[in-house]
Amino acid sequence: MSTKAHVLVLANEKGGTGKSTVAVHLAVAMAADGARVRLFDLDERQRTSFRYLENRGRYQRAHGTALPLPEARVLATGADVQAAVAEAFGEGVELVILDTPGRDSPEARAALALADTLVTPINDSFIDFDLIGEVDPETYRVKRPSFYAELVWKAKAARARTDGGTLDWVLLRNRLSTLEARNRRRVGAALEELAKRVGFRIAPGLSERVIYRELFPRGLTLLDMAEIGEVSMSHVAARAEVRELLQALGMAGTRAEAC
């Protein structure tokens, strides 16, 4: 993925899917690669991704480390998202990441309209799948796309009409558990079927691991192994997930390997 004037949006209309964790890991990886990255947190109330990077800056100052630190700002409710993105690019920012609330809002729809890449994390269950598609309760075959898939489809069409641009929609199977293998297979099959109908691609997300929650207070990511201290096999596996995610999105993250 070229980072030149690129807008990457983390969005769906459900909370608890790991959007902010993914957003911060992507921002840090690209900042480590030398890109100027600005992350806008569009959830003025929770501010999860903003606070994550705020914690990172605090950790950096306290420990005298030189961690890659993307710029982070909160956009107030009612703010002009398009103007904020235009201003960022005017200041030389190469990659804007928009972390949207887990609900429908004018700001989330404005972000969707600007997206070059849309990343939608979902938990691996039919509860979350219902956001994008309805399945038959007996066969688990997809009956029809749901409201959010239709919303993205309209955004893709509008983008093509306005500037001829394309929207790369990537769906992440996030917070995967090692349990319920049959459910995972059913969800996976339904996603593959729906992907062909509405035009998204599927990428591996981040598993359900305690380490992601533990790193938040220090603002660290799985790309900061030198700062984490004692490294377990779970840490190594989690870092491999982050690498796979970067590769799936076409984001380099090569210099982040040395963090």
Score class of each variant (00 low, 15 high):
residue 2 S to H: 10
residue 10 L to C: 00
residue 10 L to V: 00
residue 12 N to Q: 12
residue 14 K to Y: 07
residue 24 V to A: 12
residue 24 V to I: 14
residue 24 V to K: 09
residue 27 A to T: 02
residue 31 A to R: 15
residue 36 R to E: 01
residue 38 R to P: 07
residue 42 L to G: 05
residue 42 L to S: 06
residue 48 T to R: 06
residue 52 Y to I: 14
residue 53 L to T: 14
residue 53 L to D: 02
residue 56 R to I: 01
residue 56 R to H: 05
residue 58 R to L: 06
residue 59 Y to V: 06
residue 60 Q to V: 12
residue 60 Q to H: 13
residue 64 G to H: 11
residue 70 P to S: 05
residue 71 E to D: 00
residue 72 A to Q: 11
residue 72 A to G: 13
residue 75 L to S: 01
residue 77 T to L: 05
residue 78 G to T: 04
residue 83 A to R: 13
residue 88 A to R: 15
residue 88 A to Y: 09
residue 89 F to A: 01
residue 90 G to D: 05
residue 91 E to V: 01
residue 92 G to A: 03
residue 94 E to A: 05
residue 95 L to N: 13
residue 97 I to D: 12
residue 100 T to I: 01
residue 107 E to Y: 09
residue 109 R to T: 09
residue 112 L to W: 13
residue 119 V to C: 04
residue 120 T to L: 08
residue 121 P to Y: 04
residue 132 I to A: 05
residue 132 I to K: 12
residue 133 G to C: 02
residue 135 V to R: 13
residue 138 E to C: 09
residue 141 R to T: 14
residue 142 V to F: 04
residue 144 R to S: 09
residue 144 R to L: 03
residue 146 S to I: 03
residue 147 F to Q: 15
residue 148 Y to K: 10
residue 149 A to T: 03
residue 152 V to R: 05
residue 155 A to E: 09
residue 155 A to V: 09
residue 157 A to D: 14
residue 160 A to W: 10
residue 167 L to A: 00
residue 167 L to S: 00
residue 168 D to E: 13
residue 168 D to T: 10
residue 168 D to W: 10
residue 168 D to K: 15
residue 170 V to T: 07
residue 172 L to E: 00
residue 179 L to A: 02
residue 182 R to Y: 13
residue 182 R to V: 15
residue 189 A to I: 12
residue 190 A to V: 15
residue 190 A to T: 13
residue 196 K to I: 11
residue 199 G to H: 03
residue 199 G to T: 07
residue 202 I to M: 09
residue 202 I to R: 10
residue 209 R to M: 00
residue 211 I to A: 03
residue 211 I to P: 11
residue 217 P to E: 00
residue 219 G to K: 07
residue 220 L to Y: 02
residue 227 E to D: 05
residue 227 E to A: 01
residue 228 I to S: 01
residue 229 G to R: 04
residue 233 M to I: 13
residue 237 A to Q: 12
residue 245 L to K: 08
residue 250 G to P: 10
residue 251 M to T: 02
residue 254 T to F: 02
